[in-house]
Each structure stands twice: as structure tokens, then as C-alpha cells.
């Protein structure tokens, strides 16, 4: 499994790229939110990209992570993107209505 680490957060231009872990549940979600928010406050970040390339499992906590970040950046015109989204995660996006606020980019 493994916790998320500092190198999983990268800033490219004004975009924060977050490599999500293999399993996203409530147990690890708080730490991801905290780390992400530290970047959002300190750095000039407009957009956030969530990379699901490693992710094999996600529950509703993942929705919370994305919705929370969206709320923080959308008032400054920021957008939320998702990449490497598999079928199961896409289903969760659709079911939760998250597909309306997250743009899934084909990679």
C-alpha cells in the first residue's frame, strides 16, 4: 500500500500534480488533503491534477479529497483534472456527479 510521500506532489508551472496512492480510503485521505492544502496555500497554484495511475482502489473518501480541493481553487478560477482514470474510478466519478467538476484527460 504505502503512504503518500513528498515526491508524490509536484508543481509544474501553476499546476499541482498529485500522484495518488494505490489505495485511497479514509485512513490515508486526511494526510493527502493536508499535504495538498499546504501547496495550495504556499505556492502559486491554479489548477490541480490528480494522477490515478497507481490507484487500484478508491472509496468515497477519494470524492471528498477532490471535492475539497475543487472548492478551494475554483473561486480563483482553478480547475481540477484527473489522469490515468480506470473504469472503476470513472464509475465512481459518474455515480457521485464528480464528472461535472473534474475533467478527465485521456493520456
Amino acid at each position: 500500500m504505502g503512504q503518500i510521500a513528498a515526491e508524490d506532489f509536484q508543481i509544474i508551472d501553476n499546476c499541482l500534480l498529485i500522484q495518488l496512492p494505490e489505495e485511497i480510503d479514509h485512513h490515508g485521505a486526511g494526510f493527502i488533503c493536508e499535504c495538498a492544502d499546504r501547496y495550495l496555500v504556499r505556492k502559486e497554484v491554479r489548477d490541480v491534477v490528480f494522477d490515478f495511475g497507481r490507484t487500484r482502489f478508491m472509496d468515497s473518501s477519494g470524492i471528498g479529497i477532490i471535492m475539497g480541493r475543487y472548492r478551494k481553487i475554483s473561486c480563483f478560477g482553478g480547475k481540477v483534472y484527473a489522469i490515468h482514470v480506470d473504469r472503476q474510478i470513472e464509475r465512481i466519478f459518474r455515480l457521485s456527479g464528480l464528472n461535472k467538476i473534474v475533467e478527465v484527460l485521456e493520456s
Partner: peptide, 14 residues
């Protein structure tokens, strides 16, 4: 405040 989504039961149901 926990920034969960409130979708827990909805997911179980779905």
C-alpha cells in the same frame, strides 16, 4: 470538517 463526501450510503446502495 472531515471533508468526506457524504456519499457512503449512496455508494453502498449503488
Amino acid at each position: 470538517e472531515l471533508e468526506r463526501s457524504g456519499m457512503g450510503f449512496a455508494f453502498m446502495e449503488a
